[in-house]
């Protein structure tokens, strides 16, 4: 079985995010970069599927040179090879352009099933997986928490409000992984060492023959407004203090 896992390198959830003064993006200095946690579920599911049905796992990622670390992480977990789409025109690309680049790379290799994270924790668009499926013209099951593959079809569980859907689809298809799908493995040390020698193809937009013209553009990025300082209500009489709280909530905070 030919399995593809798409991964994105994102800032660690605990990293200190600072917006560039010109609002064009975030300051990247000093940030610890990690694999998007949802993509990690995808990689783990890909590896489990390989272990069950045989075959190999190819990791595909779009991003600058540092993205290689994340590809190596997936290789250390057990994937066989990687494709690194590295083109300055694609850094911070929108969901469509990214999906288009992924689709172009994936079209060149055999694939039976493709895993993506249901969204990346940096841009929070949640579109790449779906667009990728459309561009490849294959079915998709999104936000999947349970997956069963066999007999040329995939059965996926997708939680919805108050219930869960059980979806069945033919292969090839795109699955976008949600938390709960599995517990990603910890890479073994021999895995880490072997990953350094596994093949990774580096390609740019020209090699893939794709357009890098974005469909959507980030106009401006602004940090969330600073949290106003807390207020301590002084006074002796609890009833008066309570009344003051009510007044402030109604008149200043305007929440009641």
């Amino acid at each position: 079985m030919n399995i593809v896992a798409c991964v994105k390198q994102v800032p660690d959830t605990e990293a200190l995010i600072k917006v560039k003064p010109d609002g064009s993006g975030i300051e990247e200095g000093g940030i610890k970069w990690v694999m998007n946690p949802y993509d990690e579920f995808g990689v783990e599911e890909a590896l489990k599927l390989k272990e069950k049905l045989g075959g190999e796992v190819t990791v595909v990622s779009v991003g600058p040179a540092r993205t290689m670390e994340t590809i190596r992480t997936a290789l250390a977990m057990g994937a066989e090879k990687g494709i690194h789409i590295d083109d300055p025109a694609l850094y911070n690309a929108d969901a469509y352009t990214t999906a288009n680049a992924l689709a172009a790379a994936i079209k060149e290799i055999p694939y039976d099933i493709i895993f993506c994270g249901q969204r990346a924790i940096d841009g929070d668009m949640g579109q790449v997986g779906s667009i990728l499926a459309e561009l490849l013209d294959i079915p998709q099951c999104t936000i999947v928490t349970k997956l069963d593959v066999g007999d040329g079809k995939a059965t996926a569980v997708k939680p919805i409000e108050g219930a869960q859907l059980v979806l069945e689809t033919s292969l090839p298809c795109v699955i976008t992984a949600q938390k709960g799908l599995n517990e990603p493995r910890y890479a073994s040390l021999p895995g880490i060492m072997k990953a350094k020698k596994k093949p990774v193809d580096v390609k740019n937009a020209a090699a893939l023959g794709i357009s890098v013209e974005p469909k959507a553009k980030i106009e401006k990025m602004t940090p969330p407004p600073a949290r106003p300082p807390g207020k301590i209500i002084e006074g002796e009489d609890p009833a008066a203090k309570a009344a003051e709280v009510i007044r402030l909530l109604r008149e200043e905070a305007k929440v009641i």
Partner: peptide
């Protein structure tokens, strides 16, 4: 690995 402390609180803190 990511934040150089067992709790995983941002290393910058």
């Amino acid at each position: 690995e990511n934040n150089s402390n067992p709790w995983g609180i941002g290393a910058h803190l």
